[in-house]
């Protein structure tokens, strides 16, 4: 293990890359720095999309409620846009650790009964799940 300079290491984040012909992800970094239209309100449709990404089935009432609540939180978060962070490095890890490894040695696996003991449903030595659509 290696501890490098000081306490706070700042994790550099690279630029967007193009992966094997894949298009770069669209991200509105410029908007963020300008601070104008960034903390836009979240619409009900976006709430539904986010719920889909989060695998959460929401009731109509929850959709209403979360739209309102998330908007008020995001409105509060809008003060971040006041800060000029164009020259600031993001910090993903607060500790200055790097290169933390384990050696390539085989240890004990869990007893299969323990692996499966919490399974809501199982079939023989497998976890059982409903059909995949």
């Amino acid at each position: 293990m290696l501890v490098i300079k000081g306490f706070a290491i700042i994790v550099r984040m690279g630029k967007e890359f193009v992966e094997g012909g894949r298009q770069p992800l669209l991200r509105c970094s410029l908007l963020a720095e300008k601070g104008s239209r960034v903390f836009m309100t979240i619409t009900r449709e976006q709430v539904e999309h986010v719920a889909l990404l989060s695998r959460l089935e929401l009731t109509e009432a929850e959709k209403e409620q979360y739209t309102a609540q998330l908007n008020s939180i995001l409105e509060y978060a809008a003060i971040l846009a006041k800060l000029d962070t164009s020259q600031v490095e993001p910090m993903a890890h607060v500790l200055s650790l790097s290169n933390v490894f384990r050696e390539d040695q085989v240890g004990n696996s869990l007893d299969r009964e323990l692996v499966l003991q919490n399974a809501p449903e199982r079939v023989e030595g497998f976890f059982k799940v409903p059909r995949i659509v």
């Binding site: 706070a8 700042i10 984040m13 992800l25 669209l26 991200r27 509105c28 970094s29 908007l31 963020a32 960034v38 903390f39 986010v50 990404l53 978060a77 971040l80 846009a81 800060l83 962070t85 600031v88 490095e89 993001p90 910090m91 993903a92 607060v94």
Partner: peptide, 18 residues
């Protein structure tokens, strides 16, 4: 999520530095 990462998450990591 795509389109909001920089404005929210990345921004917050930068504020964390400050």
């Amino acid at each position: 999520s795509s389109g909001y990462y920089d404005a929210y998450y990345l921004k917050a990591l930068k504020v964390r530095t400050l």
